[in-house]
Amino acid sequence: MITKEIYDQYLENLVSGNRNKCREIVETLMKANIDIKDLYINLFQTSMYQVGDMWESNQISVATEHLATSITESLMTLIYPNIFSKEHTGKRAIITCIANEFHQIGARMVADIFEINGWDGYFLGTNTPIQDLINFIEIKNPDLVCFSLSVYFNINELIKTLEAVRSQYPKLRIIVGGQAFRWGGKEIAETYTNVVYIDTLDKLENLLKEEMN
């Protein structure tokens, strides 16, 4: 359980760029057998949302925000042996960011949520060319593909990728999400069949649980 005291201490060290202290906090929580979802949602996600808010309100610089992101990404790798060794169901998802974006941490968390729920979550990161994505879909034959959009101005790029994938795999179910949708674009889910917009990790988990039933 992440108490307010632990969270505050973690955030303070995250914003100060104190990687070792943050690592120590996460390792202590892991030794205490913390629930991985708790760690992801209530520590990593909440702190990164707060870091984003602090940047938007000019309380911290871009460099500090990048440092916090880099620390969080490196801490996520600590948990991988735990996540990947979970019993897998055989269901597969591909998670990718839209080209030319530099914010991948949210999408990576999505890929990890799939793993936590027994799916194989293949994360392609940013800047994957459309043809490479289509080739990867061909190889992995996923049950779902997820697109993450961080910057609203890239929505046309998302639509382009979405249409390219749909033209080849019209029945493939697609999830879209990401911070960019705070500014609009949610209607994309109504425009295309088999496309769902999901705005939180909790909702994603619910959807995955429904899939299993």
Binding site: S70, M76, T77, Y80, Q104, R108, L124, G125
Partner: peptide, 9 residues
Amino acid sequence: NSELNNLTR
């Protein structure tokens, strides 16, 4: 850094 993190994953 992003690529390294993805490869580590």
